[in-house]
Design a protein around this nucleic acid. Structure first.
Lengths: 117, 117
DNA sequence: CAAAGTGTGTACTAGTTAATACACATGACA
DNA sequence: TGTCATGTGTATTAACTAGTACACACTTTG
């Protein structure tokens, strides 16, 4: 679908230039999947892997898990759990923030972090 | 898992008292699934149905789709799409709001609705 | 009483997810 | 030169998702 595979291949190859431990095979072994599978993932021959595997891959490559999950077309399960506990409030909030510019989101984030309610 | 089935059975039976069009069979037909399947859903014999079916059921029973999806252990795809477009910002915001009390969430919702940033 | 409507038990299934296992050709390297 | 590591092609799979199809027994209802 998107360029999930391309993105991690690029990232891995960059790391590989400076550190031979970032060969496809070695990365695959460290995150616990078959090399052939990682190869297919990177070339987009198969759909992105499960959430758990994507997160391990993100850590391995020093990427933000939420960003990589987004590229994989997913939303992290723990965020979903938070939403599921108060679906009306979160649904309304998120839909309202759909069109808001980034700086507005940041503003809200900061307000919540600093604010006392 | 949760009481998804119980919840919709209760809801449907209440509606059925006043309107015979809310028999299991007729509801199943209107939302486009087999009666036997709805029966199993209501008794929790199978896991909750797909998002699309859950949403049709919510509309049929006059329930909030987001709430029913939450009971089904899911988060609506359109909310996920919004999050996926700006994963870092939304992930941080949602995790920060995890522990916030309801009135704080409402406060933010209102601020975003009324405010100009 | 017959016809229609009700809920449910049993059996089955096409499609998807998330992978594994093995073989192979190529390149590095000591 | 041999051996080791590398990336990839092909074949296969167990578990899960999201249902359908049909038969059955019971209850209204006309």
């Amino acid at each position: 679908m998107t360029h999930f595979g391309k993105s991690i291949r690029t990232r891995r190859e960059r790391l590989h230039l400076e550190d031979k431990r970032f060969s496809l095979r070695q990365v695959a072994q460290r995150i616990g999947i078959e090399p052939a599978y990682l190869s297919k993932i990177e070339r987009g021959e198969v759909s992105p892997p499960s959430e758990a595997t994507t997160v391990r891959l993100a850590h391995e490559l020093g990427e933000d898990p939420d960003v990589l999950l987004a590229l994989a077309g997913k939303v992290s399960g723990d965020l979903q759990n938070i939403i599921r506990k108060r679906p009306k409030l979160f649904a309304e909030l998120i839909r309202q923030l759909k069109e808001a510019p980034d700086h507005a989101l940041l503003h809200v984030v900061r307000e919540v972090r600093d604010g006392e309610w």
